[in-house]
């Protein structure tokens, strides 16, 4: 048990894992296997290590991290995904937002396979793509096999400075068939929100009404790679920025797909840009297998439409079910 604690590169993720364990433990009844593996060894060790030693360890770990960053001795993959930076910095920034601010309730994360590629298809909403980030944090924090979600993002993300650099480092890539297929073939979990701007920029009155799912390209990509499709429903993101208007002219001038007007933005300036602290639920559904189809199925438009509709219906029904269960928008 004590040996399990001194794996050199594991201190920080493990330390934070115990910190969030109560939240996780109450919300999601985890299967016993991962519980024994991750929670088991670190839980009894942690109280003994509290105080000077754990602080020292964390300090040493932090300095090692700093040393690697300063000398450039870290790895990124072909897509620019910097796993170390994502685990140690970007996710620690997202965690308080997910756990304290939106209090995300993650359900059914075990529907994402423990190994091999999978395509997570989710609804998109909320004016700013916070739902994508929360989805990534949910998989990263709650998946028993420590899997990472690779999101497919709109091209606007890679045009904007700072955002583009951070998005690449967090493992996002452009939503195109080439990139998605390459990631799936490498056995990654790919997250996609096929509604795109139609979903994220829809008026508040249309909340929780799924928009058209693009042209269903995600289904043929999953079919080509033989990866299962995991439908995912996100409740709570619709109300963070209630979009009551859209300044179309201003959007066109700025080159944006829409310019949101909410009850607070832009009237209250930067304060108005704070998202409302809604209570979120992220529900992963049963995976839909795609490996039983012949290779030419990816070019069959009828099958594409049927599968797209099946995924869309699943997400829509789960959304309705979760909305009925929800007590209030904020609790």
């Amino acid at each position: 048990m004590a040996d399990a604690k001194v794996i050199p590169f594991g201190e920080e993720p493990r330390a934070r894992r115990t910190a969030r364990r109560p939240v996780n433990g109450t919300a999601v009844p985890l299967t016993p296997v991962p519980e024994a593996r991750t929670g088991g060894p670190s839980r009894p060790a942690q109280p003994a290590a509290r105080g000077g030693r754990s602080l020292d360890d964390r300090l040493a770990g932090g300095l090692r991290f700093l040393r690697r960053r300063l000398t450039g001795e870290y790895e990124v993959d072909d897509f620019g995904y910097d796993e170390e930076l994502t685990d140690q910095v970007l996710m620690s920034l997202l965690r308080p937002l997910a756990e304290k601010y939106f209090r995300v309730d993650v359900r059914g994360v075990e529907n994402i396979p423990a190994d091999g590629g999978a395509l997570v298809v989710a609804n998109h909403s909320g004016t700013l793509p916070l739902d994508g980030l929360m989805l990534q944090a949910a998989v990263h924090e709650h998946h028993p096999a420590d899997r990472h979600l690779r999101l497919l993002a709109a091209d606007l993300v890679f045009v904007l400075p700072v955002v583009s650099a951070l998005a690449r480092k967090a493992g996002h890539t452009l939503a195109c068939a080439e990139d998605a297929q390459r990631l799936l073939e490498r056995g990654e979990i790919v997250g996609v929100m096929p509604e795109g701007f139609k979903g994220i920029g829809k008026p508040f009155a249309d909340r929780y009404k799924l928009q058209r799912f693009g042209r269903g390209g995600f289904v043929s990509t999953a079919l080509r790679a033989g990866a299962p499709i995991v439908p995912c429903s996100i409740v709570g993101a619709e109300e963070i920025y209630p979009m009551i208007g859209n300044a179309r002219t201003l959007a066109r001038v700025l080159g944006l797909p829409y310019f949101p007007l909410t009850p607070t933005f832009p009237w209250l300036g930067p304060v108005g840009a704070l998202p409302l602290p809604t209570k979120w639920t992220i529900q992963f559904g049963e995976p839909i297998a795609t490996d039983g189809y012949p290779p030419e199925a990816a070019d069959d438009p009828m099958l594409m439409f049927n599968l797209t509709d099946q995924v869309r219906e699943t997400i829509q029904h789960t959304l309705y079910k979760l909305l009925v269960q929800r007590r209030s928008v904020f609790f």
């Binding site: 000077g52 020292d56 300090l59 040493a60 300095l63 090692r64 700093l66 040393r67 300063l70 000398t71 450039g72 001795e73």
Partner: peptide, 20 residues
């Protein structure tokens, strides 16, 4: 130079770990 930076960080680590 990266090895110079690495040495600085190592020295810092030694100083901080020696203190407690």
């Amino acid at each position: 130079p990266p090895d110079c930076l690495a040495r600085t960080v190592d020295r810092l680590a030694d100083a901080l770990c020696a203190r407690p």
